[in-house]
Design a protein around this nucleic acid. Sequence first.
DNA 1: ACCTTATTCTATCGGAT
DNA 2: ATCCGGTAGAATAAGGT
Length: 324
Amino acid sequence: MTRTTVHTADEGSTRNDATALEPERQRSACPECEGRIRHDEERGERTCQECGLVLDTDEIDYGPEWRTFDDETEDRRRVGAPVTARRHDKGLSTTIGWRDEDAHGNRLSSRKRDQLRRLRTWNERFTSKNAKERNLKQAFGELERMASALGLPEPCRETAGVLYRRAVDEDLLPGRSIEAMTTACLYAAARQHGTPRTLVALASVSRVEKLPVQRAYRYLSSELGLEIEPADPIHYLPQYASRLEVSDDAERLAREILEAAKARDLHSGRSPAGLAAAAIYGAARLTNERLTQKTIGEETGVSSVTVRNRYRELLKAYDEAGSR
DNA sequence: ACCTTATTCTATCGGAT
DNA sequence: ATCCGGTAGAATAAGGT
């Protein structure tokens, strides 16, 4: 049975034609897509030109310096807040609080209050001065919200932000919703960082349906030329294991099972989430932990039929690998 | 935009624990 | 009574025309 290369936009199926990595490109190539790395001095970031993966951010520490330069005041700060790609203005704009009181919490005079109100108005006009900026502002808010709902880590959020910025720069937005695009960016970023979430999971925290997200992702990935490898089933294990409350032993075993399956090219064309769910099931069974296929299905969103089919294959491959 | 192909899902049922 | 394993047909995803 020969399955051809499949590159799914959804869970991402595994490939048959796993091309061997050329060792000579190791340092200067992106670990995810082998693309060229761009070194952005200005931002202190190294990003992949192909897929937008952020390798390191803040090579330069923009945080406060922990020593003082002013002997009088002991003030350790030199300049303002840290910069981050996730604020539409990189966190550099002025913010004015909404309270009509001074730093000590005292009421302000009416004159001062009026002055402050005018300042706020103008500040708002300057900080969100055009559609693009407002767009980014909203989008980053959404990214942040969804990422924390899914428990996605920091670097992943940064990557999503970078991807979104690129999408805007390349004019991919007109004609589709900001929501769909941000969700797609986060989906892509999560996969690039080895903390994949299924499209269904993304859609459940997004304000839009799965379909538009999927379209946006397809578009994004083809227009930006993101070459995202299908997700590795192993990456789903920690999530599923904790949700299903299996022992560490079982999780470790599941990992071994997946390794063995990978070595025998069982991943090709199959849904990584399905394989992961099945591996957990198989492992739980081997360690005599009571877990029904139904429970697995409910927690992972993989049907019991798929769990059955995969786990038989997985255990077979695992046995054969073990008996040699 | 439609068609093709492989995979997964829903629904269902007999048999086992 | 519930779980397991198998099957049929619908639905879905991705690539190509």
